[in-house]
């Protein structure tokens, strides 16, 4: 009997911890979102977060996208040439970039860059009493620190993904025309011939969700920081890891929603 209870307890404890954590995160997200529709609005904070997330992430997202497009063209050419289906390279590159690789890779890159920085900044503010100081100065920390970042995430990622899509296709185009012997006009024709509005829109919707998740995990983990430098370090790691996993999990869920017949 004791053995059975022990086994149940061993199973139940992590489940309870998971439920508690999920509940806290959901309440945190709901409160953060609720401040987006309740004045006052911190427009300057939103603008600063948007510039940090979108403009300063451009180089890393652009480089990732262009090299991914190049590799994708090379790999798909190598594979498809075995079946004499090289003409599909252009459509594979554009569909892969717009539907999957653009939003996912941009999301992972921004999670590493901005998610970590957000968690570190809010975590440091937490352990140095700056968040308490905000409260004593008639400023709701959720409204001032969290809501502008959530909105910036929702807007910044789709903007970055538009750039990533274009550069990814450009990377594939450069490799295909410069080293694989494709005709430039035919390649572009194949690219746009098979591309549908839904392919781009689904990628942008995914990007908006990923942007929200990155900002949410950065803010949540930063706000939960305790105990000085070590706590801030742990929060930074947790923000990046959790955002990355959630991006991949939500990618599957959204793909299922958009494309499963």
């Amino acid at each position: 009997m004791n053995l059975l209870l022990g086994a149940l307890a061993a199973f139940g404890r992590p489940v309870l911890i998971l439920c508690r954590g999920t509940g806290r995160l959901a309440l945190f997200a709901f409160e953060g979102l609720s401040h987006l529709v309740r004045p006052p609005f911190h427009v300057r904070r939103f603008a600063a977060a948007l510039i940090e997330m979108a403009y300063f992430s451009l180089p890393v997202v652009a480089l990732t996208a262009i090299f991914t497009g190049m590799v994708l063209a090379l790999q798909s050419y190598t594979g498809f040439s075995r079946f004499a289906a090289q003409s599909a390279v252009a459509s594979v590159v554009v569909l892969s970039m717009t539907r999957e690789l653009g939003p996912v890779l941009a999301g992972l890159m921004v999670a590493g860059r901005v998610g970590a920085a957000t968690a570190a900044e809010i975590g440091t503010m937490r352990v140095t009493d700056q968040i308490d100081a905000l409260s004593t100065l008639s400023t709701d920390p959720m409204k001032y620190l969290v809501a502008p970042r959530l909105l910036a995430g929702i807007i910044a990622l789709p903007l970055l993904v538009v750039v990533a899509d274009i550069l990814g296709v450009l990377g594939g185009f450069i490799v295909s025309t410069a080293s694989l012997g494709f005709n430039a006009v035919t390649y572009l024709h194949n690219t746009f011939n098979y591309l549908e509005t839904m392919d781009v829109v689904s990628g942008l919707v995914k990007a908006a969700v990923f942007g929200f998740l990155i900002a949410l995990m950065g803010c949540y983990n930063g706000n939960a920081s305790r105990g000085g430098a070590q706590g801030v370090g742990a929060a930074t790691t947790a923000a990046v890891v959790s955002a990355s996993i959630l991006i991949l999990a939500f990618d599957y869920v959204l793909t299922q929603l958009f494309f499963a017949r």
């Binding site: 900044e121 503010m125 140095t128 009493d129 700056q130 308490d132 100081a133 409260s135 004593t136 008639s138």
Partner: peptide, 20 residues
């Protein structure tokens, strides 16, 4: 409570200035 907080000033131990 917010209205009462507006009537209070606080100096924190480590100053807690907003470094940004």
């Amino acid at each position: 409570r917010r209205a009462i907080a507006a009537r209070i000033g606080m100096l924190f131990q480590n100053s807690a200035l907003f470094d940004s």
